[in-house]
Amino acid sequence: MRLYDIPLPSRLMLGTAQYPSPQVLAEAVAASGAAVVTVSLRREAAGAPGANGFWSLIRQTGARILPNTAGCHSVAEAVTTARMAREVFGTDWIKLEVIGNADTLQPDPFALVEAARILTAEGFAVLPYTTEDLIVGERLLDAGCRVLMPWGAPIGTGRGLRHAEALAAMRQHFRDVPLIIDAGLGAPSQAAQAMEMGFDGVLLNTAVARAGDPVAMARAFGQAVAAGRLAHEAGLMPPRDMAAPSTPVLGMADLGLDGLA
């Protein structure tokens, strides 16, 4: 997978919050094979660049760092956070989150497009956290984004692909744009489903971080993503309404009704 011309060896991205410890986080990243980890930047954490012990532990994982503007509720806040993140982490990549409602944590598509326009003009590689709405997706591409990150379900809910048909339509509509399912995945089967549908990758956090054994769960997600992608590339059989025999009839004994009597 290539995002913004950078080749990535894995289609799984992991968030870094809520782990029992940074050590468990590092082991989980390694077990999952994730190529990208997201880090949320809180304003008070940016005081002393380079000194933050947590960030240096994250750098040691070797995964590419994708700072995000988690928890930002306005264009100005998101833009400021993105600029700080560029200073702190030395990367133009930014996962752009502009939250429209503190309760549902839904993206605010209007502010998202505006913030994306400002940031791409400043040279950021913007990965916007959006809904499955096609027009919002088009506006984000118009604003200069080259990747879209539609949600599976609201952040932290573990509901999977709540609007699977709308997401399938999105996949059809943006055939040549990398689409990453971001948020709402609770189980490896859901990640596999997204990959089977042809999404380019998935990003998740809570399902791994809050698992009983985060390292094992990270490995499970890594395998599910790889399996789902492989299945997509192999070509899934179309579902049928009627049974079709999978065992060839040729050569079966023809006993006839007489023989059974």
Binding site: R42, R43, E44, A45, G47, A48, A51, N52, G53, W55
Partner: peptide
């Protein structure tokens, strides 16, 4: 619980 070295007052 904030992964931060900042010593300033509560936000």
């Amino acid at each position: 619980m904030i992964e931060s070295d900042a010593t300033g007052p509560i936000t």
